[in-house]
Write a protein that binds this DNA or RNA. Structure first.
Lengths: 237, 237
DNA sequence: TTTTGTAACCAATATGGTATTGGTTAAGCC
DNA sequence: GGCTTAACCAATACCATATTGGTTACAAAA
């Protein structure tokens, strides 16, 4: 312990005393469940050390990974700041439609495979109902809504809320990145639109518990969607 | 159009006029890029209709999916409210360690495959440096920090910010779910810890552009980690 | 001179009061 | 009955203020 302190370049003796007091304070606080410790200005007075020494001790513990600090929030025990929320626009701002499509191509077939393994009968029934609704859609907007629902139902059928959450994130990023890209309003999807057959193949494979078939069908479907999307993207540049 | 209005149960004639005026307003606003429309109290006066009629017309457009509203925020044109942030705790609260592990097994091998395809030389150099640091870690805490860094470097090497973002979400969920589970403090990772060899195989496969090898090595590594984690989980129940 | 303690300041965040907004209800008026 | 208006509610936005970790300057002490 003493060697550690020496090696850490902690100035004089006062710094050492502050570190010992702090470690005692942490040990006492560890079994209370509370993770946030008092403000530096209070703590240094409470421990009877100067704020500079306290900060040196805190820096040691932070480098060791026992605490983490952030301006305006405070000092906390734990390995690091657990991000409580992820900003969709932060992801969407640093990417492009091609990367989104590639991510979908990587994630969604595996989700479909998992769905084929865990889908319940009611899951499958709900998907089949969505299949009918996609064909009945009167406008492109309605079609997109039902299409979104169907893909999410597949993710939900994986019965894995982590996968479902990741799908939701990916979906939100996609809607942010591609927002306002295709504006082919007015018409409705043609009756021979490739997605109809694609969707049916996916749902059928899931219903038959064909893991590889579901993944392959989803991959094929996304590749078809990608082919229709890339030309628009290149034409815009 | 007129039939639509009739079928939508929009009371008397005043409601129809409000709908027409609103549609005109939307069309005029559509090509300005602005998505938020004025507050109801202003808009109803601007259009010269009562607030009740305006709200009926807004309800029709909302049911049609052309606008969406939220208390305190306003009314916006578009299919739906794009979730700007995803709460990690929302996902973590509805799941369990097993699902997190399964999601990692599905996602991370594919990320490793992508990394083998797109990693730059500096990416690989950084990974190798992390490999050394994992062996030098003096405590389990330090080891975990470097291990986290290495896995994130692999995701970063995919050169796909969407995949990187999804990895960050998954990682945050994992750290929330497993928080405080393993408390084997004090010791340091043994020299023959399986992860050392696992990590080296993964990085080597990426460096050699062996797509399948990278994915397989990552899958094997995570399966090993899972085997060490499940017993702890079952023992707790 | 070097080190330590103190105070002051900065940028980021938290906090609380106020204003705004969609949603709802009730009364008055055709 | 329908229609209008007004008032109220809960959720959100907005803004000023307080708090916090991070930094610097300067005097006191060694």
């Amino acid at each position: 312990m003493r060697e550690l302190v020496k090696s850490m370049d902690v100035g004089g003796n006062g710094g050492h005393a502050a570190l010992v007091q702090l470690q005692a304070y942490l040990a006492q606080m560890d079994h209370t469940g509370e993770t946030r410790l008092p403000a530096e200005r209070e703590l240094c007075e409470s421990l009877g050390v100067s704020r500079g020494d306290l900060r040196k001790a805190l820096a040691v513990l932070e480098k060791d990974g026992r605490i983490w600090r952030h301006v305006g929030k405070g000092t906390f025990v734990g390995s690091g700041p657990i991000e409580e929320t992820i900003g969709i626009s932060e992801i969407a701002g640093r990417t492009n439609p091609a990367d989104v499509m590639r991510a979908r191509l990587i994630i969604e077939p595996e989700i479909a495979r998992e769905a084929a393994l865990h889908a319940t009968l009611s899951d499958i029934a709900a998907m089949r109902q969505s299949l009918v609704q996609t064909r009945e859609a009167a406008t492109w907007r309605q079609y997109e809504n039902v299409d979104n629902l169907l893909h999410r139902q597949i993710a939900q059928a994986s019965r894995n809320n982590v996968l479902l959450g990741l799908f939701d994130v990916l979906n939100a990023v996609r809607r942010t990145v591609v927002w306002g890209r295709l504006r082919s309003e007015g018409a409705r999807p043609p009756a021979d639109h490739h997605s109809f057959a694609d969707h049916e193949r996916i749902v059928e494979a899931i219903a038959e518990r064909d893991l590889g078939g579901a993944a392959a069908a989803m991959r094929l479907h996304l590749q078809q969607v990608g082919r229709r999307l890339i030309p628009l993207h290149e034409a815009a540049e």
